[in-house]
């Protein structure tokens, strides 16, 4: 087990390194850098920066030197000081911009993840056990549609009906009267009332994908020799299903945390935009469009970090669920 954990941790570190490189490349890609942008802004205000000022600024922000030095400066600032750089648009340190919204983002995503699971697992299992039944066909059809429909399209359709039926679009995570209230039952109910919309929009693709995964896996498992063998020794059908194939089919399900989380986070970009959620999505979009690269890069970095942590959690869960992995017989 410890060996397994150690391997995962090393792997995670390597991944983070790779991600940081990629993010740095993204940050450095657009022509010009932070100081150039600053110069332009001052120029608009009629102020001029002397070449000495510029050089001073560059060395302050670690923008002198070659790309490798710049990368090293950037990454040490992050690792040692938690300093993600300055957001040009917001005129604030990036870490401040992000931290104020990270909670809501994670909250919405994790809530959606849990609901997604709770919906997808029974549907997928039912669909596999009752293969070729009407329910199976319905689930499969909806699954295909869910996967084929971009989630912003779902959001748009949702908005169309919402406007035509109710005359408005519900936005934000809370109604004005509750937003500043302290936590109580009313606020929780209000939150749930707002949360289900982003959940539907963000979660549809996830549910569709997971239903497909669980169905295919379970179908595979149901054909394995151990199922016949268990039946041959008289294990009753209900228990047979629960103890044997369902348990094995849970594995790939758990290992999906890694890829479902980013899908949910990206769904947030779309939905957050339309529904005005106080999440990272809209900020990221704004930063990308305005080429506010430190902010954009940092958010991408944070999303990737969340994904990597998600993968780690799913690896740990897998190790706990599956003795083959725990004992190192299966990679």
């Amino acid at each position: 087990m410890f060996q397994y954990l150690g391997r995962r941790a090393i792997y995670m570190a390597a991944t983070l390194l790779a991600i940081s490189l990629v993010v740095f490349v993204i940050i450095s890609l657009p022509p010009g850098d932070f100081v150039t942008a600053l110069e332009a802004r001052y120029a608009v205000q009629g102020q001029r920066l002397t070449p000495e000022d510029v050089a001073e600024l560059r060395s302050r922000y670690g923008l002198d030197g070659n790309l490798l030095q710049q990368y090293l400066h950037w990454i040490t600032q992050i690792v040692l000081h938690g300093d993600l750089g300055m957001s040009f648009e917001h005129q604030k340190p990036v870490s401040e911009v992000i931290s104020s919204r990270l909670g809501a983002t994670l909250g919405v995503s994790i809530a959606t993840l849990l609901v997604t699971w709770a919906i997808a697992f029974p549907i997928g299992a039912y669909s596999a056990v009752k293969q070729h039944s009407i329910g199976d066909y319905a689930a499969t059809t909806i699954g295909f549609l869910g996967l084929a429909t971009p989630n912003f399209l779902i959001a748009l359709i949702f908005i169309y009906f919402s406007v035509n039926w109710f005359g408005s679009v519900p936005s934000g995570l809370c109604s004005p009267e509750w937003c500043d209230a302290s936590w109580n039952l009313g606020k929780v109910l209000d939150l749930l009332g707002h949360l289900w919309i982003p959940m539907i929009v963000i979660g549809t693709a996830g549910v569709a994908g997971l239903v497909r995964i669980i169905r295919n896996n379970l179908l595979d498992e149901l054909r394995r020799p151990y199922v016949t063998a268990a039946r041959a020794r008289g294990v009753p059908e209900g228990r047979l299903l629960r103890r044997y194939p369902l348990r094995v089919a849970l594995n790939p399900f758990v290992s999906t945390i890694g890829w479902v989380l980013p899908i949910l986070l990206v769904g947030d970009i779309v939905v957050g935009q339309i529904l005005g959620l106080p999440t990272l999505g809209p900020i990221l979009l704004g930063a990308l469009k305005g080429q506010d690269m430190y902010l954009a890069g940092s958010i991408i970095m944070v999303l990737s970090l969340v994904t990597v942590i998600g993968t780690l959690i799913s690896d740990l869960l897998l190790g706990w669920l599956d003795p083959r992995i725990r004992l190192g017989y299966l990679r």
Partner: peptide, 21 residues
């Protein structure tokens, strides 16, 4: 494996956004 570990969609977004306007 390393390339796969970088989440695809943010990567798409970032690269696309970095293009000259």
């Amino acid at each position: 494996e390393l390339v796969m570990a970088v989440p695809a969609i943010p990567l798409w977004l970032g690269l696309a956004a970095a293009l000259p306007t």
